[in-house]
Design a protein around this nucleic acid. Sequence first.
DNA 1: GTATAAAACGGAAGGCCGTTCCGTTTACTC
DNA 2: GAGTAAACGGAACGGCCTTCCGTTTTATAC
Lengths: 205, 205
Amino acid sequence: MVNRKTQKKGRDTQPRGRTVRHLRADAQRNLDALLQSAMAVFATSGVHAPVRQIAEKAGVGVGTVYRHFPQRSDLIVAVFRREVDACVDAAAVLAAAHKPGEALTRWLQRYVDFISAKRGLAAALHSGDPAYDTLPAYFQKRLRPALETLLDAAVAAGEVRSGVKPDDLLRAVASLSAPAHDGDPTHARRMVGLLADGLRYGAKS
Amino acid sequence: MVNRKTQKKGRDTQPRGRTVRHLRADAQRNLDALLQSAMAVFATSGVHAPVRQIAEKAGVGVGTVYRHFPQRSDLIVAVFRREVDACVDAAAVLAAAHKPGEALTRWLQRYVDFISAKRGLAAALHSGDPAYDTLPAYFQKRLRPALETLLDAAVAAGEVRSGVKPDDLLRAVASLSAPAHDGDPTHARRMVGLLADGLRYGAKS
DNA sequence: GTATAAAACGGAAGGCCGTTCCGTTTACTC
DNA sequence: GAGTAAACGGAACGGCCTTCCGTTTTATAC
């Protein structure tokens, strides 16, 4: 790694910071196409969809899929992480566009949408495959600070009560989003709406 | 079906009542062996265990498995139904051996054990496979009357409060048994114990 | 521009699994 | 004991995940 045959400068002039080592242009392109394809296929056919199908939709061979994601589960995990990240990013956007209380409410609904849509996730998480063991921790690690920021701002603005812990709220919303017992898809949204209103009650105290 | 070649009476002398049509002795034996084998294999290797493995442990060929259970999911469903039945039967045993309140509490713990142990079930139920769609209804249909009997007896004896619906109790206990978040296996038992004590509070009113 | 090495690609092939099929065996009836 | 339908067993098929390696593409050196 220290001295390679023919390589004096090129991209390695400023690489010390991290072991970034940029992907080749085609590799990066295929990686993006794969994640996008996988997201679409999982959404329509579920997480059990064949890898071949994802590869085909992305316009690559299966070998390329396994170059980027050694196991099928790695691809699934990558997709979920990306969607969590999108949910986290939405917090900043909402905070910039709305008053604190409104931003909080809207983000909770956004979170419900994420949980509800990705019900295939539950199947993966409960499958017993240890490949997914790190996902819940990642969820917590990324989502909690995002919610915390929104929550703190809303409390500071006197729009919601204080004393509610972000973790509890995340868990409660996830639980409410869980069953969809009778096949009523609006149930979760309604219950969480109720919960959000509950937060406002007793504000400015 | 009406007139078959050579069959004048034999077992068909008293078959009108139902379409029972007893299985041949070896078939019945293999069926029992299969269910027992499947229960054991699912418990140790999860519901994803190969059918071949179950067949081998039962000492039969895979063809025999598929003769009794046309689909792999049929075998899984049969095992779960059998375990639900065992849980239901336990209600009568407990009711005969203990005072009503005690019987109720013990049965709830028995129910927790069932739910917790069969966590593989969650994976199957959330897999999206419609083969499992009828299972929840079966659970409800069998478990509710069993719990109802215990509950009514306990209420009549003045040992627990009235006004608690069996369905709500079943659902609540199932929810409490669900996550096992941090890997604490006693959590569910403790919470349900609490719940059972709560039932006793305010009795004889 | 050309040469060269490394990186990345693609798809055939291997292995496992669910399911089907059919020749053989077994359990009942007379 | 003979006959017949039920039941059996395992080879074979198709689909899937994963590996492997010859070929192609990119990035760099000259």
